[in-house]
């Protein structure tokens, strides 16, 4: 009796605390269910054998079969992949150089440049979209720069802005965390600045560069709003195809395509996490990187 009483006493003290903790836990689980509800629904409905996406008919793979059979679907995925790769290459190039400059050549300009990146990152996409459309028309038609009438070029331009800001940010924070000793040693040993960049700075920044490239690729794959404004008919990326289906009627193959693209995106993101983990980032740092 006495021993059980002795154990019960501190438990009694902790009881209100446990209640709060239980409440937090329950709330956490509810929110996670909320976060996954529509994704689970899309996954289930991608096996809807009916004609309309929203009304469940029966289980079947017709959605996936239709997805492969429809040229409009396969070509939109192909357009997205091409634009995603190209915009990722471009954003990685611009962002890596800018990130290195921010980390290794600090000065007053960094404040101005950060402000510009911040504006690029927080401007609502619809504003980017409605301003890029007239601008690309102006460049392509009024100035006669034919390259800006090309569908892929337009998509790449539209996707590159936000991605460049993201890559710059990731590369900068990686290099800021590493001190400049190695680069100084390299310079002391008579390596030219170019050689130091290739042999020392770039390898140091590599995990961040790879993570940035993969993130840009997934951002490019997902670009919907800007793409729907600047796209040229004939080069429709997959989210814009989905958006037009929202207006004309959703079929199960839309869900099937979405599942395939989600798997692709998550695969790329998984790679990012592996790359960052290998480079020694903690879970919190990875979260910060991925959330931009």
């Amino acid at each position: 009796m006495t021993s059980s009483g002795a154990i019960a006493a501190p438990r009694k003290n902790r009881k209100p605390l446990n209640l709060v903790e239980a409440g937090l836990g329950v709330w956490g689980v509810i929110v996670f269910i909320f976060l996954f509800a529509p994704i689970v629904v899309i996954f289930i409905y991608s096996f809807n054998s009916g004609r309309l996406l929203t009304s469940w008919d029966g289980f079947g793979f017709q959605g996936y079969e239709a997805m492969i059979a429809k040229p409009a679907v396969t070509s939109s995925v192909w357009v997205s992949l091409r634009a995603g790769v190209l915009s990722s290459v471009l954003a990685t190039l611009l962002g890596t150089l800018a990130g290195v400059a921010m980390a290794r050549r600090p000065g007053k300009w960094v404040i101005w440049f950060s402000a510009l990146l911040l504006f690029v990152a927080i401007t609502p996409e619809i504003v980017d979209a409605v301003s890029l459309l007239p601008w690309l028309v102006f460049l392509g038609q009024d100035l006669g720069l034919g390259i800006f009438n090309d569908g892929i070029v337009r998509l790449v331009v539209g996707q590159s802005l936000f991605s460049t800001a993201v890559v710059t940010y990731i590369v900068r924070s990686r290099l800021v965390g590493l001190n400049e000793n190695l680069e100084e040693a390299s310079a002391d040993l008579y390596a030219s600045p170019t050689k130091t960049f290739w042999k020392i700075t770039l390898p140091l920044a590599m995990p961040a560069v790879l993570a940035g490239a993969l993130l840009s690729f997934t951002l490019g794959l997902d670009n919907t709003i800007v793409a729907s404004f600047v796209q040229v008919s004939g080069t429709t990326p997959w989210p814009v195809y989905v958006l037009s289906a929202v207006r004309s009627g959703l079929r199960p193959d839309i869900a099937s395509m979405s599942v395939v693209m989600l798997v692709l995106t998550l695969g790329a993101i998984g790679l990012v996490v592996v790359v960052l983990k290998k480079a020694g980032d903690s879970a919190t740092q990875i979260a910060r990187t991925l959330a931009g």
Partner: peptide
């Protein structure tokens, strides 16, 4: 969910 296409989540 953050990396699921915005439009797809909304269709869900």
């Amino acid at each position: 969910p953050y990396w699921t296409n915005f439009l797809v989540r909304t269709i869900g």
